[in-house]
């Protein structure tokens, strides 16, 4: 207990209050406090009574919610995996293979334009493409690959196609950045010592670019788990992901207590998975 006065003294003496007062107050008032309100609502009874875990019981004891949570996580995992598989080769290609500076710049512009466009607009493009009479189906039918149109809209596949599209640039940019920072002399040295291209890639480029790939994957995963717009537009109301449940409660049902419990569950699930990802991060041990 004797440390508390010392701590308070340090707070008064060492805190750069003139710099911190405004940001701290603002974030307390409009970030920490609203989240606390959600947390409190999620553990209080709807009639204003005392503490209750009834809302959490309603969320966690219902198999329907587990199905949706599992579906949401599955979509996020598949999206992340595909984005990594497409993003890595593209990043490598842009950094190491493309020689012309103007071409690489043009490709970066192309990568960044989607990031500067609302995900409504980007999902809307896929609604047009993936519809029953959209180009994708017409092309596949015209080529004789399928007989009847495939239903992309309203399926997990459609949502994954849209999410990969929206989140892919993050993987390419983080991975490309890591590859661009690799010192070529390491590979030259390996080459002098007799390592072939495959071995050079496996022992030098891959391990050094892995942190970039993983940080991109974490961004993709967190955004995919909580995505609302893309699933809402590409599901045609047939597939429900977790964020849609939350939106329903806040925007049409107005049950802030039950909605609060849903929000906290999504928040905790996301943070747990990020924590797990950081714990098993293979790049951490080596450094």
């Amino acid at each position: 207990m004797t440390r508390l006065p010392a701590f308070l003294g340090a707070l008064r003496r060492d805190m750069p209050w003139p710099l911190l007062a405004a940001p701290l107050l603002f974030f307390a008032a409009f970030f920490a406090f609203p989240l606390a309100v959600v947390l409190v609502a999620s553990v209080t009874a709807a009639d204003g009574g005392g503490l209750t875990l009834a809302h959490y019981a309603r969320v966690l004891l219902d198999a329907y919610h587990w199905d949706i949570l599992w579906l949401t996580l599955r979509i996020a995992f598949v999206t992340t995996a595909i984005a990594m598989m497409l993003g890595y080769p593209l990043a490598y290609y842009l950094v190491r293979v493309v020689e012309a500076r103007w071409l690489r710049r043009a490709c970066v512009v192309l990568l960044v334009i989607p990031l500067f466009t609302s995900n409504i607009v980007r999902s809307f493009g896929w609604m047009v493409l993936l519809g029953r009479v959209g180009i994708v189906n017409e092309t596949l039918q015209g080529a004789g690959l399928i007989e009847r149109p495939i239903r992309f809209l309203g399926s997990e596949t459609g949502i994954v196609i849209g999410l990969v599209y929206i989140l892919l640039p993050f993987v390419v940019l983080t991975t490309g950045n890591a590859i661009a920072a690799i010192d070529r002399r390491l590979e030259e040295a390996a080459s002098d010592l007799g390592a072939g291209p495959a071995q050079r890639f496996r022992t030098i480029v891959w391990p050094l670019s892995l942190p970039g790939l993983l940080s991109g994957a974490v961004i993709v995963f967190t955004l995919a788990v909580s995505a609302y717009v893309t699933p809402a537009l590409l599901s045609s109301g047939r597939v429900t992901v977790f964020s849609m449940l939350i939106y329903q409660q806040y925007a049409s049902v107005f049950d802030f207590h039950y909605g609060g419990a849903l929000s906290v569950v999504l928040l905790v699930a996301t943070l747990l998975l990020l924590w797990a990802a950081a714990a098993i991060d293979p790049t951490r041990r080596r450094t």
Partner: peptide, 10 residues
């Protein structure tokens, strides 16, 4: 979406 919901409620 959680932040948006929280701010609305607040």
């Amino acid at each position: 979406i959680v932040l948006g919901a929280a701010l609305l409620q607040y």
